[in-house]
């Protein structure tokens, strides 16, 4: 319900102004994407909200090398984007369609999702396997790999995210994901997200992220290395799934036990990899 501690909502006219106001107020200020996470989780120390609406940060654009999703783009807008529908066979769109509910997808923005980086996020692992970069602004414009951004972020202290950039060249990649939930409208007990390029009976490139452990998704380069360059074999897939499960940092929480999460990781990694392989059989 109402955030009684919030005194001001500022609508800056430029990105520079937005950043300046953030510097002025420090941790007492939060950037506002769709606002969901601010309404639900902003602590009482937050008194100023800086709305990033109106800064032309919405929309999906495409150039020769990149697809750029403006940080204020909602999940629904991304789902409806023809550009994203073509990208990596619509992989990101498929992931987005399963997130939360349509009511929330109409509000939730990419920037907000990254800013809050909830450990149950299904969007973040998809962006990790797509090797997304973030165009950010923290006084100057720069780009940073998504993984780096996640490792370095502190709650409430993020730079302004301008856009999420997806490298083209993943066109021939095939993706599969499994977000294991209790009911249809739920956050995952575990999620597994895979993107791979296969050719000549071998794994040319494999990217695997496992999340909801209950920690935030991470790339499993150890498992990827087991597969890349190797011929595609059922035993190899099974072995990779076992490695994935053995080494995840799984914990008990209100949704599942660590042991069960390990079991799920193994089953779901195996299934995602098989799905990618079988998908080529058309």
């Amino acid at each position: 319900m109402a955030l009684h501690h919030v005194r001001d909502v500022i609508r800056p006219l430029t990105l520079e102004e937005a950043w300046q106001r953030k510097l002025e107020h420090g941790p007492a200020a939060r950037f506002l994407g769709g606002g969901i996470d601010v309404v639900l989780y902003a602590p009482p120390t937050v008194s100023t909200l800086i709305d990033l609406e109106g800064l032309d940060l919405s929309g999906v654009r495409e150039d020769a090398s990149w697809i750029s999703i403006g940080a204020m783009t909602t999940m629904t807008e991304a789902i409806e984007s023809a550009t994203l529908g073509r990208y990596a066979s619509g992989f990101l769109v498929r992931v987005l369609k399963a997130v939360a509910s349509p009511l929330q997808r109409n509000l939730a923005t990419f920037g907000g999702t990254l800013g809050s980086a909830h450990p149950w996020s299904d969007v973040i692992p998809a962006l990790l396997v797509l090797e997304a970069e973030l165009a950010i602004y923290d006084g100057s414009e720069r780009t940073v790999a998504l993984g780096t951004y996640l490792d370095e972020r502190k709650a409430g202290e993020s730079p302004v995210i301008r856009a999420i950039r997806l490298p083209k060249g993943s066109e021939s990649a095939r993706g599969a994901f499994a977000s294991f939930t209790r009911t249809g409208f739920d956050v995952p007990l575990l999620n597994v997200t895979c993107l791979a390029v296969v050719g000549e009976g071998a794994w040319k490139d494999v990217r695997i992220a496992i999340g909801g452990t209950p920690g935030l998704a991470k790339r499993r380069r150890d498992v990827e290395e087991e597969l890349v360059g190797r011929p595609i074999r059922v035993e190899g897939i099974a072995a990779a799934a076992r490695s994935a499960a053995d080494a995840i940092d799984a914990r008990d929480d209100v949704r599942a036990s660590a042991g069960y999460r390990r079991r799920l990781a193994r089953a779901l990694v195996e299934r995602c990899l098989l799905e990618i392989v079988e998908g080529g059989a058309e």
């Binding site: 209790r182 009911t183 249809g184 409208f185 739920d186 956050v187 209100v254």
Partner: peptide, 16 residues
């Protein structure tokens, strides 16, 4: 009570 919300007390929705 550790899960006093619909977030973690899961009742069936239309998808179920």
């Amino acid at each position: 009570v550790r899960n006093p919300s619909f977030f973690d007390y899961k009742i069936p929705g239309a998808l179920d």
